[in-house]
Design a protein around this nucleic acid. Structure first.
Lengths: 222, 222
DNA sequence: TAGATTGTTAATCGATTAACAATC
DNA sequence: TAGATTGTTAATCGATTAACAATC
């Protein structure tokens, strides 16, 4: 039967960071990379990188490492980034603007083709080279250009209504930056970003540091 | 010895979402909540919520649920959110502005007390009620107000230099939104947010959906 | 050669899931 | 009572970690 778990795999979340480093190394003219280098860059254990890379199915060269171009292709393939994805961004506030300015998306094959907002101040203006459309016209525009996914950057209060609307228009994949749990039908997949999750991770570490202040320094890697 | 792992615990990352819901319920005048309600809101399995809540150490009332005020306190305590944290935000671009506008931080005890930027266009302006200071003055200002952590929202190219600077000024905790792996001494703890990690999670799900299109619909929860 | 690196297998650990008891 | 809910224990699963073999 069709397994549908893939919850929040840390491996998957690390892949784009490897990719980012590999792009930079390629720009520097390098042709090969070792897991040692990647681990050093990422500040994580060598074996973690080894396992991640192995999952992509690539074969390396002992004593040399992996061919950078090949590794990029294998990671992209693992993530499903072999084709491009089209997206519409809804909500052209500060967060939406930040996402539009995120440079790596081009390398990852994410193409944000349209931007929508409900504010008269925003509609008609241009952000990072993209015109902001009236959200009221979204139905019309989707007839000519139907994106693979929607990126939601509207206020918490507006998020559910916008979501209902775009699902009606046939959107199946949603990347949600609003701080609410969207209620959607089973066929729709939502990836929610919770800003405060990172804060929680950080403060828990702070708490543990405080509590173990009398212990030995810190357990770092060997 | 002082365990220092706590990598990326999904439990910890879910806690702020529970908290967010609990605050809303309290505003609605509710006094108790069941894990059933929380699971429904979060769109996750009941047992996951039960385990998470149990980890906080709170005792519930069978057939009734948990006292909302108590649960808020237990979760806050679990996350180390019993005291407030002071932070400085570095980089007043779109992303920095978005973070300054994130309303829940007040509830979480995060107080962003100062904002720094290097651009003449930004310095002296006010964002969400906070004046933007010249990054060059950060050393001076830290003498009067030394934050617990720094939130880095500068460009990828500027991030490492800014990091070196603030570590020199005594910052030990960094919340990094720039798309680089910061190199820091062992004592410094960095929480990195990788935007593309969420995208990867979403696209992998898309890929699996495509591959299993001929299978039964989707495996949703029972 | 010696050493750096990949490849492979097994052990450990923690999160998720399942099953059922307790009880108001 | 019956049913909703918490509480508890065990099973499963997957990620991390460890150990060592292979080899250029």
């Amino acid at each position: 039967m069709g397994r549908m778990k893939i919850q929040n795999s840390p491996t998957i979340r690390r892949m784009p960071s490897y990719l980012h480093k590999l792009f930079n190394m390629r720009l520097e003219g390098k042709t090969h990379v070792s897991t040692t280098e990647l681990a050093k860059y990422m500040n994580i254990e060598l074996i973690v990188v080894r396992k991640d890379i192995a999952l992509t199915g690539i074969a390396g060269l002992r004593r040399v490492g992996y061919n950078i171009n090949d590794l990029i292709d294998y990671i992209k393939s693992y993530l499903g980034w072999t084709k491009t994805f089209s997206a519409c961004l809804i909500g052209a506030g500060a967060l939406g603007t930040a996402i539009l300015g995120y440079e790596d998306f081009v390398n990852y094959g994410l193409n944000i083709g349209s931007v929508f907002d409900c504010s008269d101040k925003k509609i008609g203006t241009s952000i990072h080279g993209r015109e902001v459309y009236d959200i009221e016209t979204i139905g019309q525009r989707f007839k000519h250009y139907h994106p693979d996914m929607a990126i939601i950057c509207v206020s918490n209060t507006a998020a559910q209504a916008v979501t209902d609307k775009i699902i009606q228009l046939g959107i199946h994949y949603i990347w949600n930056f609003a701080n609410v749990c969207l209620q959607v039908p089973p066929k729709v997949i939502v990836q929610r970003e919770v800003l405060a999750g990172g804060l929680a991770t950080l403060t828990v570490k702070m708490k543990h540091m405080d509590e173990h202040v009398e212990d030995k320094p810190i357990e770092t890697k060997k």
